Amino acid sequence: MAQILRPSQKYLKKSLFTSIDIALSLLLLMPTTALADKNNNSNDPPPQTTGTSGGSRGCETESETSSSSIPTLILLAPSQIYGQTLATRPTFAWFISNSTSWQMEFRLYKYDQASKQSKLVKEIKDENFKSSPGIMMLSLSSPELLVGGKYLWQVELVCDANRPSGNPFATAAMKVVSVQPDLEKQLSQSNDVLTKANLYNQADLWYNTLEIALISKDEPKLRELNMSLLEQVANGSEIELKKQIQVELTKSAIHQLQR
């Protein structure tokens, strides 16, 4: 049975446990020029999203150090705008700072701007879906998303199934857009991964750009673009924390998941 919810109510309830770290604003940000894109105008903002986990350190164990201020969970997604993609079966990515493996839950909702409601279209919460320290990439084989559709995606770490209010969680917004004729022509004329990544980046297609950059992380020609995307996660944070996050992201192992 399809699940219908009002995101604002869900997130406001969760925000009681995330108000401390939300102030850090450690979400991925696109360059300022991206904010002026016609698909991301100020009259069409996404619902409230929280790209980083907050509240208590959540899943820390006694062996985990408490000296680090890095959030347990950081989604690799833009803040305050819909991250755009051409893919109807996109790849999602997030960073886990905790070294212990925990059960994860992933949810994808289709958002309706008019009704301000979201419908659950995908949920992953099987026993084999667990966290690993570093960057995790999730590719979905289904469902096929709709061009023009707006979606919310959420990742949650299950520290204690009996106390879900203490689980670290984060949410982000995504919009599936149609390819413009000029871009489609340019993409068809090139087999070079760097050229394609730059074309996606210039078109403000965050998820397409990030997927190539992460998969080709060790490719010398793509290293600069990869670094640029990952460093944006720390924009707006305190200087010392920004440096710490940059270091952790750039040296992180990448774990690819398929569901």
Results as ranks from 00 to 15, higher is better:
109 Y>Q: 10
94 W>R: 06
70 I>D: 01
106 F>T: 05
49 T>A: 10
72 T>H: 02
71 P>F: 00
80 Q>H: 06
78 P>L: 04
114 A>Q: 15
69 S>R: 10
127 E>F: 01
102 W>Q: 15
38 K>G: 01
66 S>L: 14
32 T>P: 05
76 L>P: 03
81 I>Q: 00
44 D>C: 03
82 Y>D: 07
23 A>E: 13
64 E>H: 09
114 A>G: 07
124 I>V: 11
50 T>R: 09
129 F>R: 08
114 A>R: 13
116 K>Q: 15
107 R>C: 06
39 N>P: 02
72 T>W: 01
118 S>F: 06
42 S>C: 01
40 N>L: 05
76 L>R: 02
69 S>E: 10
96 I>Y: 03
113 Q>F: 06
117 Q>I: 10
125 K>T: 09
109 Y>T: 07
58 G>Y: 03
84 Q>G: 04
35 L>S: 01
61 T>A: 09
42 S>P: 00
124 I>C: 01
34 A>L: 00
118 S>H: 04
48 Q>V: 11
115 S>F: 08
49 T>K: 07
63 S>Y: 13
68 S>M: 11
61 T>K: 15
106 F>N: 05
82 Y>F: 15
27 L>F: 12
96 I>H: 04
37 D>C: 05
85 T>E: 02
67 S>L: 15
76 L>H: 06
95 F>E: 03
83 G>D: 07
75 L>F: 01
49 T>N: 06
75 L>Q: 01
31 P>W: 03
116 K>I: 07
23 A>M: 14
85 T>A: 11
77 A>Q: 11
99 S>T: 15
111 Y>I: 06
105 E>K: 15
27 L>P: 08
50 T>E: 05
46 P>Q: 01
26 L>C: 07
107 R>A: 10
57 R>L: 14
85 T>L: 07
23 A>Q: 15
76 L>K: 04
121 V>N: 04
66 S>V: 12
51 G>Q: 03
121 V>F: 07
64 E>S: 12
97 S>K: 14
29 L>R: 11
34 A>K: 01
95 F>D: 04
92 F>V: 13
100 T>P: 08
32 T>W: 00
121 V>T: 11
127 E>D: 07
110 K>L: 14
67 S>Q: 13
25 S>D: 12
91 T>I: 13
35 L>G: 04
128 N>D: 08
106 F>L: 13
106 F>D: 05
27 L>E: 08
118 S>G: 11
122 K>G: 02
43 N>T: 08
86 L>P: 04
47 P>L: 08
53 S>C: 04
53 S>K: 00
43 N>P: 00
83 G>T: 08
129 F>M: 05
54 G>L: 11
50 T>I: 10
116 K>T: 10
72 T>D: 07
87 A>Q: 09
113 Q>N: 11
124 I>L: 15
22 I>P: 01
66 S>I: 10
39 N>C: 06
91 T>S: 15
